[in-house]
C-alpha cells in the first residue's frame, strides 16, 4: 500500500517536472523566435511619452460657441486666402487664384506664373498676388495689370495688406515689411532693425510673418519671434505692441507665433498659431475672448492657417492640409 502511494507520488512529481520542462522549452523557443525575427512585439504602447499631448489639449471652457461651414475650392496646394469688400473669397494655390462666393460656389479662376504665397484685395478691387519674391497685380477678371519689381534678390514674401494709399508686403527672409505705393513704387521699409537705437526689429525664425490693416488705415504686423503683434502708423512708425509667449491660452506658443492674424470689423483680433494649432479671438483691448478652434480639430502637423474676415465678421480659416476653407460664423462671438 505504502509502496503504491510512493509510486503515485513519484509519477505525479515526474509529470509535473515534464510539464515544467515543456513550458520552459516553449518559452525558450518563443524568446528565441522573437530574438531572431527582431520584431520584439509592438513597443509603441509602452514607449515613453512626453507630456506634449497634454500641453496641446484645449481648455474646453474657453471654446467659443461658433458654427462652422466648410467650402472646398477646386484648386490644389492652397497657401493663401483673402476676402474682398463684397465678401467673395479668394484662394491662392499652385500657380492659380480661384474666386468663390460665400456659399463656396466657383466664380472664376486664373493662372499665375508661380505658386501663390500670399493674397490681398485692394480697396480698388485689384487682386494683389505675392509670388516668391515679387508682387503681381491682377484685375478682378484675371487679367494681369502689373508685375512689381522684387524688393530684394533674396526676398521671400509671406503677406500683403493694402490701403487706398499704401501696400505693405511682409518679407520673412529680410525680416522687414516693404512699403509700396499703390502704383508699385517702393517707398520704404517698416520695422527695420536698428542696433544704435536698440531696435530689435522683426524676429522671424520661420516662414510665417503676417500683416493686416486696422480700420483707421494703420498697420499691424506680427513679430512672431517676439510673440507679439506690433502696431505702426500708416507710414511705418512704431506705435505699440501687445502679446506674450506662453503655452496657456492667453499667450502665443512655440518659437514663433502668431503665424497669421486678421482684424475684425469691431477691432478684435483673430490669431492662428502653429505647433499648438489653435485659432483664438482677442478683443480690441487685446484680452482673450476665447478659442474658436483647438488642436483637436486640426491635423497634428497643420501649418499656415491663413485668416481673413469679411464685412459681417465671419472668420475664414485656410486648411491647407485638407485643401479647404473653414468659415466660422460670428453670431455667437
Amino acid at each position: 500500500m505504502k509502496s503504491n502511494r510512493m509510486s503515485e507520488a513519484n509519477t505525479t512529481v515526474r509529470n509535473m517536472l515534464v510539464i515544467g520542462f515543456i513550458a520552459v522549452a516553449v518559452a525558450f523557443v518563443l524568446m528565441l523566435v522573437r530574438g531572431i525575427s527582431g520584431t520584439g512585439g509592438d513597443h509603441s504602447r509602452t514607449a515613453s511619452r512626453h507630456d506634449i499631448d497634454v500641453l496641446k489639449k484645449t481648455d474646453s471652457s474657453l471654446l467659443l460657441n461658433v458654427k462652422m461651414k466648410i467650402i472646398n475650392p477646386s484648386i490644389g496646394d492652397l497657401s493663401a486666402l483673402a476676402v474682398d469688400g463684397d465678401d467673395n473669397i479668394y484662394v491662392g494655390g499652385e500657380t492659380a487664384v480661384e474666386m468663390l462666393d460665400i456659399n463656396g460656389v466657383h466664380v472664376h479662376c486664373f493662372v499665375v506664373a508661380e505658386s501663390v504665397r500670399c493674397l490681398s484685395i485692394s480697396p480698388y478691387g485689384e487682386i494683389l498676388v505675392g509670388l516668391s519674391d515679387h508682387v503681381e497685380v491682377y484685375h478682378k477678371n484675371g487679367g494681369r495689370k502689373a508685375a512689381w519689381e522684387s524688393p530684394a534678390s533674396n526676398a521671400v514674401l509671406t503677406s500683403i495688406a493694402s490701403t487706398s494709399n499704401y501696400v505693405y508686403v511682409a518679407d520673412c527672409m529680410n525680416k522687414i515689411v516693404w512699403l509700396y505705393s499703390v502704383s508699385g513704387e517702393l517707398l520704404g521699409r517698416v520695422g527695420e532693425k536698428d542696433a544704435d537705437k536698440r531696435k530689435v526689429g522683426f524676429v522671424v525664425p520661420s516662414a510665417f510673418f503676417d500683416v493686416a490693416i486696422a480700420r483707421d488705415g494703420s498697420l499691424w504686423a506680427a513679430n512672431p519671434g517676439q510673440h507679439r503683434l506690433e502696431h505702426y502708423t500708416s507710414d511705418g512708425r512704431f506705435i505699440s505692441y501687445w502679446g506674450r509667449p506662453g503655452l496657456d491660452a492667453e499667450g502665443f506658443c512655440g518659437c514663433c507665433n502668431p503665424s497669421n492674424f486678421a482684424l475684425m470689423p469691431d477691432g478684435s483680433f483673430v490669431t492662428s498659431e502653429k505647433h499648438i494649432v489653435r485659432v483664438k479671438v482677442y478683443d480690441s483691448e487685446c484680452k482673450l475672448k476665447g478659442i474658436i478652434s483647438g488642436q483637436e480639430e486640426w491635423n497634428k502637423d497643420a501649418l499656415g492657417l491663413d485668416l481673413a474676415v469679411d464685412s459681417k465678421g465671419r472668420i475664414f480659416v485656410l486648411d491647407p492640409q485638407n485643401g479647404r476653407v473653414r468659415i466660422y460664423s460670428r453670431n455667437c462671438i
Partner: peptide, 28 residues
C-alpha cells in the same frame, strides 16, 4: 538681442531625444 546660439556638448549627450521632441513640437 534677441538671438542665442545653442550647441551640443556631445560628451554629455546621452541621446534621450527630449530636446529633439520639444524642438520639433514647438520649434523649427
Amino acid at each position: 538681442e534677441p538671438y542665442y546660439e545653442y550647441t551640443i556638448d556631445l560628451s554629455l549627450c546621452i541621446g534621450c531625444g527630449k530636446c529633439v521632441k520639444t524642438c520639433g513640437a514647438f520649434g523649427n
